[in-house]
Computed example of a mutant assay.
Amino acid sequence: MTSMYFTEEHNLFRKSLQDFLKKEVVPHIDDWEKSGEIDKSVWLKFGEMGFLGINYPEAYGGLDLDLFYTVVLLEELQKINSGGFAAAVWAHVYLAMTHLNAEGDEAIKEKYLAPSVSGEKIGCLCITEPFGGSDVAGMRTTAVKKGDSYVINGSKTFITNGVYSDYLVVAAKTTPELGNKGISIFVVDRASKGLSATKLHKLGWNASDTGEIAFDNVVIPESNLLGKENQGFNYIMQHFALERLIMGINAHARAEFALEYARQYMSERTAFGKTIDKFQALRHKMVELYADLDINKNYNYTVANALNKGEYVVKEATISKLKSTKMADDVIYNCLQFLGGYGYMEEYPMARMFRDSRLGPIGGGTSEILREILSKIIIDKKEYKPAT
């Protein structure tokens, strides 16, 4: 079935991106997976091609294209089989840069957003804390106003691009007594005195640098405040819809890649005188997994279309992430089984995919938290509204 959401221009963009990734990224993935560090030069190449500014204003070097170009980018990044590299890109483009674009003033956009689009500066988003995982309202990091500056103290953890990025978008409490109504968002330069980062070692996503960040009396100018003071929680919640949809799209894309790889393998692998794709138990399992994938993929496209039209899709995006990441884990688990012993070997792509996919139901809000959010929306009839 031809998707109603992709035009010929989208398809040409996809082909251009595929060619670029094959030439500039794929040959280096294994090295980056081993070193845990992505060569900075590739960011500039991404920037030159316009891939970092797909949906950002032309005034800052972006292309100002619709959301389905972003869908193409996310899907193709999953097919190079490095969840870490893909995460480094989308964490920069759709976590850090989203806040710069939505809440930053003109000076911030000139200083941080424009070079982010070109690949000269890479960013990260710092929300999660060692004591507060998915509990955004429970954060302890503070930003105290002193004259025309803010002084930040606290820590963040599990931050993608947290070690090698050039700037950090940081959530901190400016009025702690107000709880989640006292959170603000700031942009902080990596070179700021008192800021330090420790690299964390992970089960998967090995190409990306994940860090724990410490802020020890980090002084930043008042002008580095993004948006309005004490409105940070609303900003975070509003952008979570995009983040969750991104992780849902990532999930269906990696599941699709895994199924296609397994299908090709099964068409070539023989046992008892025939290829294993002729065995009923395996054939039926394969199509069951494909059906689950197809349902999730088309749901995700529907949500992307609604978000592209400006609709507030916090419920739908939450469902996207919850269901798609579970589906991807199930698909990849079974695809590894289809490969038998070879699925367990590092020379084959399924072992890495198995590790990388497992973060899906954890990052960007655990599945347990998402179920509770949906319970509040569906059962308690709680309404979430856009930030004003």
Rank of each mutant, 00 (worst) to 15 (best):
K23H: 11
W32V: 04
D39M: 09
K40S: 14
S41R: 13
E48L: 11
G50V: 05
I54G: 03
G61P: 05
T70Y: 01
E76D: 10
F85G: 04
V89P: 08
H92K: 11
Y94V: 02
L95P: 00
L95H: 13
N101T: 05
E103P: 00
D105I: 12
E120I: 05
T128K: 13
M139Q: 15
N161D: 03
V169A: 02
A172N: 05
K173V: 03
K173C: 07
T174C: 10
G182Y: 06
I185P: 01
D189V: 07
A191K: 15
G194P: 03
H201M: 10
A207Q: 04
T210P: 01
V218Y: 01
P221W: 06
P221D: 10
L226Q: 07
I236N: 03
L245G: 05
S267M: 10
K274Y: 08
T275W: 03
Q280T: 14
H284D: 13
V287K: 11
N296S: 14
E311N: 10
T318N: 06
L322K: 06
K323A: 09
T325A: 07
N334S: 14
G340E: 14
E346M: 09
M353C: 02
R355C: 07
I362A: 03
S367W: 00
E372N: 09
I373T: 04
I377W: 04
I378F: 02
I378W: 06
T388M: 08
